Simulated assay, not measured.
Amino acid sequence: MNTGNGSAQRFDLHSHTRASDGMNTPAENVRLAKEKGLAGLAITDHDTVAGVREAVEAGEKLGVLVIPGVEISTRAAGKDIHVLGYFLDTRNSTLLERLASLRETREARNGQIIRKLQELGIAITLDEVIAGLGRPLRNDESLGRPHIADTLVRKGYANDLRDAFDRYLAEGKPGYASLPRIAPEEAMNWIREAGGVAVLAHPGLYGDDDLVSDILERGRPAGVEVYHSDHGPEEEQRYASMAERYGLIPTGGSDYHGVRQGVVFHGDLGSRYVSGECVGLLRDAAAD
């Protein structure tokens, strides 16, 4: 049910499109999944479900199962925590209103980042970041730090995306900003209320397993993302044990964002995956 070799059906449950901070259209992600032999993938853009419909339509044409999803931005104990939702009703009006409110917070956060960078003597504006998309930003799409990093690289303030984060945008760096957000357990409730199933994303990135355990106990998600591009073998084993201890579904995905400056970020589509059994368990949990 993990990244194993030779699984008959493989599903990547964590991918992003240009509806948030991915590089590809939703249809391109689906086409890539087909080329890589995946049976399906989840579209899990940040604080938006804007890319799901296009992906579902592409999946129906290509014979690829597209799982409607989202990745919700939350905060706990001073850390940014992400919560994945699967099989949720992407037309649920309450969910759409809630996600819109999160994008407003994200927009205010982006403004703070830009101001901090300007105070460092960096000539950058939000209009430049949006112009870098090469297309208008839709109201239901979200702008993230990778977009700002792209502009920093384009203007010569960083060598590549990782350098932009390491110098300016990562937590603790001079350009980092974070506004108050909802708690992880609230996001999990939102997902359940929209008919979906909640999963705690990439716990290894938080550097605090006590916090992870606390979130799992309070939020009661159905699963935890054990297999992720930024998890090594030791972390996979540790979170697989944690999933077993709490009776959770061990899920996984690449967290694919596409190619930026020639580098795949975080991992290539299909590099982390789960079996059809895991997908069935998630679907059943959403139906309960």
Score class of each variant (00 low, 15 high):
L102T: 09
E193R: 14
L65R: 12
R115D: 09
L269F: 02
L84Q: 07
F87T: 03
S142N: 08
R145P: 02
R283H: 01
S142E: 00
A177M: 04
T25Q: 10
D208Y: 01
K61V: 01
V274C: 15
L65V: 06
I215D: 04
H147I: 02
P180H: 14
A108M: 15
R238I: 04
D284M: 10
L88F: 09
V226Q: 15
I182C: 14
E71L: 12
G85M: 12
G175R: 11
H257K: 10
T251D: 11
P68W: 13
F265C: 05
M1D: 07
L282S: 11
V30W: 08
N110I: 02
E217M: 15
E186V: 10
F165D: 09
R245I: 09
H16P: 04
N5E: 06
G51V: 09
G121E: 03
V279W: 13
A170C: 01
Y256I: 02
A50N: 07
A187C: 05
I148S: 02
D210T: 01
P146D: 04
R260F: 08
S254L: 00
M1K: 12
R181G: 08
L117I: 03
E193D: 08
A170H: 03
S271T: 09
R167I: 03
D21K: 11
R245M: 15
L62N: 07
R238C: 06
G78V: 04
E234N: 03
I215P: 07
M188C: 08
H16V: 05
D214F: 04
A194Y: 02
G223F: 07
G196P: 13
A77W: 06
V279L: 14
T44H: 13
L169K: 00
